[in-house]
Design a protein around this nucleic acid. Structure first.
Length: 199
DNA sequence: GGAGCGATGTCCT
DNA sequence: GGACATCGCTCCG
């Protein structure tokens, strides 16, 4: 099965809101025990650097958020609320913090495995598989120890983003979810009308 | 179908 | 010690 063009480092070497919009419609691919798990990115959020109070990078570089200050195109995975992981991809040139949070996928390949990883029946509604940042990580088997700091512009890493040539018809900009600071900024982007957007 | 809420680990103050 | 970029369950309409 031929692979589609993969997004390269330059794609991510731009401001987070630009990268966030550009990621909508692209396909996130994870190689899990030899099997391809894939889903179309339908919901993202942009987190800026030192001028974004809601961003992990806001308070400066720490061991936890160090990935954000490194090169673009690297996975930043963190653990939240004692039970969930969230997947981000770092943006901006090296030394400058910023990232895009992946919030929801429209499942395309490997749905049965995703259901299994989620602890659901094989015939569970696809909407329950990866609509929401915690669900997305669980459906793809992504954890901090296995994926934080890996390069998503390398095929060998087992996690990358492909471009199948389709573009969203319409993108909607909304406030970000679940934050208190800078909550009014419209930095959440969704494919308008897509059923797999969270909530 | 929607509001309310508890669970639970890690990081930083 | 408190905050936290969430989820799924309960209860109510």
């Amino acid at each position: 099965m031929p692979s589609l063009p993969m997004l390269a480092r330059e794609f991510y070497e731009r401001p987070p809101d630009t990268v966030a919009r550009a990621l909508l419609g692209k396909v996130l691919v994870r190689r899990h025990e030899g099997q391809r798990l894939a889903g179309r990115i339908v919901e993202v959020e942009a987190y800026q650097g030192l001028d974004d109070p809601a961003a992990h990078a806001f308070a400066g570089k720490t061991p936890r958020n160090a990935v954000l200050f490194g090169p673009p195109g690297v996975a930043y995975v963190y653990f939240i609320y004692g039970m969930h992981y969230c997947l981000n991809i770092s943006c901006e040139p090296e030394g400058q913090a910023g990232c895009v949070l992946l919030r929801a996928l429209e499942p395309l390949e490997g749905l049965e495995t995703m259901a299994e990883l989620r602890g659901l029946d094989a015939d569970a509604p696809p909407r329950l598989l990866a609509s929401g940042p915690g669900r997305l990580c669980q459906a793809l088997g992504i954890t901090r120890t296995t994926h934080n700091g890996i390069d998503v512009t390398s095929r060998r890493a087992g996690l990358h983003v492909e471009d199948d040539g389709t573009a969203p018809e319409k993108i909607e900009a909304l406030p970000r979810v679940g934050i208190r600071k800078a909550a009014e900024r419209p930095l959440r982007f969704v494919i308008a009308g897509n059923r797999f957007v969270s909530r």
